[in-house]
Design a protein around this nucleic acid. Structure first.
Lengths: 204, 204
DNA sequence: GCATTATTGCAGCGATCGTTGCGTTGGTGC
DNA sequence: GCACCAACGCAACGATCGCTGCAATAATGC
């Protein structure tokens, strides 16, 4: 993955990007995303095909085929769109309060069957589908830790915080039938904060 | 079979399906399972269909359709078979040693791309596919904790141990491109053991 | 061995999928 | 308003999927 030199071929001043984020395109994308979410909530991902999605969205199958290269790409896009909308990072003034509220929000969000279905499908089809689901969550976690560090407090690394918070929350939601509740998630945050000053495992 | 024989001590306890576990059926099942694993390691799960599996396994597609109701059932069966084979529960004499070795084994196992692909696919297709992947792991965890409890030691609950060990390990393996290594997993076990006597979050 | 029957192979069929060429709609800039 | 062109709808096609008859094979019990 060699880093290329500064690429100036993108977004020239004169020539605008060939895309067209017009009103109809936005409507189609919204309709297709909604159709994917609704269908995943009803039937298993095995029966999710492009024509079925198109019919549910009220658009022609050709449109879906042309706009999204594969079903995996579509699912990744749906997941990314779904998990980047609500970016309300808590700011309670203390790391403990922020993490408690954030963990409770994440755990509560994963209670929704539709949300779970999207994550399952995105994980199943494309390899990078998982990253699309949690990328924004990890950024939120990092911003809260940075804020505490600016206040002069001792904070764990982002990796360790993700391990101790997102790890149990997502694991329970995906692999067990009974996901953890908000109280349980808050106690996860307490556990992390109580031990964040101790020697931490370094990621291998 | 009109008359009931006296001693029907056939191997129906843990042999397999009660119908006819003959040599050919076993060969077909093995071949199909192997084909699923190999195909998942090569192409994304999206391209995994019954005829493709059958061709790879060297059997007729009809056979696959008749033996497994759906692709989700087949994937769950493959996952369950894959994760119930190696049942080597560590017994080092101490809870810390057991958990350290067990966590390292689990983390190392999830390094294999084939294993990851099976879990992803099983999670994506059927809802209960996730349970088929981790059911045995959880049992192993419980047996190690029971052993320590019999020795008189203080042990965390199975839920908490699963949260702190399986949570981070599976989360990193599934949602990030860089899964945790054996050393990192051992330190997870250390963290759990060091805090197992403190007040524990009760599952919600 | 021999009969029984579960299991597999085979051929073929509707249905659906994924793609392509072309005409039409509608967003964008003037 | 008007022209331009990206985006969408439409129709048709080959390919593949999923299923169902019936025949052949081989595992099981006697």
């Amino acid at each position: 993955m060699a880093s290329r030199t500064a690429d100036t071929t993108r977004s020239d001043a004169a020539a605008g990007p060939p895309t067209r984020p017009g009103g109809r395109s936005a409507r189609v994308r919204t309709a297709v995303h909604r159709a994917v979410i609704e269908l995943l909530a009803q039937a298993p991902a095995e029966q999710l095909t492009m024509p079925v999605i198109a019919a549910r969205a009220g658009v022609h199958p050709t449109t879906v085929y042309r706009r999204w290269a594969s079903l995996g790409d579509l699912l990744s896009a749906v997941a990314e769109s779904r998990f980047t909308d609500d970016l309300v990072v808590p700011d309670t003034g203390s790391l403990r309060g922020d993490l408690r509220r954030w963990a409770a929000d994440v755990a509560t969000d994963l209670t929704d069957p539709e949300t779970l279905a999207i994550i399952r499908a995105a994980l199943g089809t494309s390899t990078e589908g998982g990253c699309a689901c949690i990328g924004e969550r990890r950024t939120q976690l990092g911003s809260m830790l940075d804020r505490e560090r600016d206040r002069g407090g001792a904070v764990p690394t982002v990796d360790r915080a993700a391990d101790m918070l997102m790890g149990p929350i997502y694991f329970r939601a995906l692999f067990t039938e009974r996901p953890g509740g908000a109280d349980w998630a808050r106690e996860l945050a307490d556990t992390l904060v109580d031990h964040c000053t101790q020697p931490q495992p370094s990621p291998a």
